[in-house]
Write a protein that binds this DNA or RNA. Structure first.
Lengths: 100, 100
DNA sequence: CCTGGATATAGATATATTGCTATGTTATAA
DNA sequence: TTATAACATAGCAATATATCTATATCCAGG
């Protein structure tokens, strides 16, 4: 019953597009990659690894959390972010394996 | 030698982000889906299937062709578009299979 | 309570994107 | 040619995004 090439419902299209657009930004994509490779990281580790402003990192992290792409937990003064959308991880893997 | 979780080069990040951002739009995602399901289609078939203005379809198609996501061929008065980036097809499949 | 490190948010500016309407172009057929 | 269907593009207004600087908040230690 499952079609190989299925058609997404209108709502699914919207959420998928939102997710893809969200990770379709160089900084956010690098954050995703970092979290995918290294597991959850706090904000300092992220903005130092990417050599970006703290505020910029925080804004992108918040955006992705709002969209359900990332989740966070606070441990004392640190806030650790992790990937929370399985589709994101799979999309990243796809892209890696598609390098031609 | 191939790492399971590799790190994309700076340039690869840019092109991947550009591609993801490009398909991260409801109309463009639906066009991709249509072409993925049905194979190449002309502009009329596309804008009728999606119930959008011809100019809107044309603009999105041009954008995706510019980014290397789609390719087109003219046959008389018709212009047929098809997916030209294998990563796009795989990403779409990922998203379909990730529906939870 | 006060300090300092870690994050988050506000406000402003610059730029990009979107969708619309109208018009231009191209190719075929009569 | 001229008419017409199929596409493409231009120009515009509305909206959304990105980035920067400054400031605010939160929390552990002293």
């Amino acid at each position: 019953m499952t079609l190989e090439r299925q058609k997404l419902a209108a709502e699914a299209i919207e959420t998928a597009a939102t997710m893809l657009k969200c990770i379709g930004h160089p900084v956010r994509l690098q954050i995703i990659e970092l979290l995918d490779r290294e597991g959850e990281q706090n904000v300092t580790a992220i903005y130092e690894a990417l050599r970006i402003e703290q505020a910029v990192a925080s804004q992108h992290l918040n955006l992705m959390r709002d969209k359900g792409i990332l989740a966070s937990r606070r441990d004392g003064v640190n806030v650790y972010y992790r990937i929370d959308d399985p589709r994101v991880t799979r999309v990243i893997d796809c892209i890696h394996h598609c390098e031609l």
